[in-house]
Amino acid sequence: MANVERYEAPESLPELTQILAEGPATMFAGGTDVVPQMRVGARPVRPTLININRLADLRGISESNGVVRIGGLTSVADILDCAFLKQVASVVVQAADCFASGQVRNAATLGGNICNASPAGDMIIPLLVLDAEVELASWRNACVARRRMPLCDFFTGPGKTCIEDAEVLAAVQFPVPKPHTVGRFRKFGTRPALDIAVVSVGLAGVKENGCFKDARVAFGAVAPTPIRGRNTEAALVHVELDGDRISDIAQVAEQEVSPISDVRASAWYRTHLIRELMERMLHEVHQTRD
């Protein structure tokens, strides 16, 4: 990191976005991805390094007008401990519980996990099934400008997103899930702690009388980005679940993913796991009363 020429630690969003407007910079909050990537040369070292930890406004979980808002600097540990989220959107909390280790959860932020854009990013999958949007802030015309886009459109490839150099991910928001919403997150790692997902599966939808009225499904680590499972969603809604149906839906899931083989697993194993996890998740949801 010898090439860093300037270090900044702004305390407000206007201050931060103005620095970003001045030229290429590397932002870090928890540093759990950025620092190791810079050390091994996987992330270019930009001349300005910005510590964004002091922006108190970007931290916290709130709800207003039926919209849940999580600040980009909210730590994964804060999400795990949030009673409100547990109640209204437990799928996010389930993912936080699978995330790395206690130490990493204390440091890592939601915005960092999203902007790192790993196909295996643990916090992305539950937000995809909650129909979340990201809010991106930048300095335009002498004030902070904000734009929003659906999270499912945000990713363009491994480590790549639509965020521009001068933007920061200020918050994530999603509608408060409707009553009778069921949410599940399952991560498969080869060990119970400190592991990167071999695959992950998320599901959220309104379930009444044993039947999903709507459903969103997402998969991690099976494509260049985290993806929505649209075919699986279509197969799942308005269907009365039973053993055979569950098996059919799991097969749809298996068919709509096309993972790669790497050092963590083969494509064959990942595909098998998607089916297995989907099937187990649906059995479990089916057996749980609405």
Partner: peptide, 10 residues
């Protein structure tokens, strides 16, 4: 990260 040692819960 990719060389998997056994961790405490196991």
């Amino acid at each position: 990260r990719d060389y998997k040692l056994v961790t405490a819960p196991e």
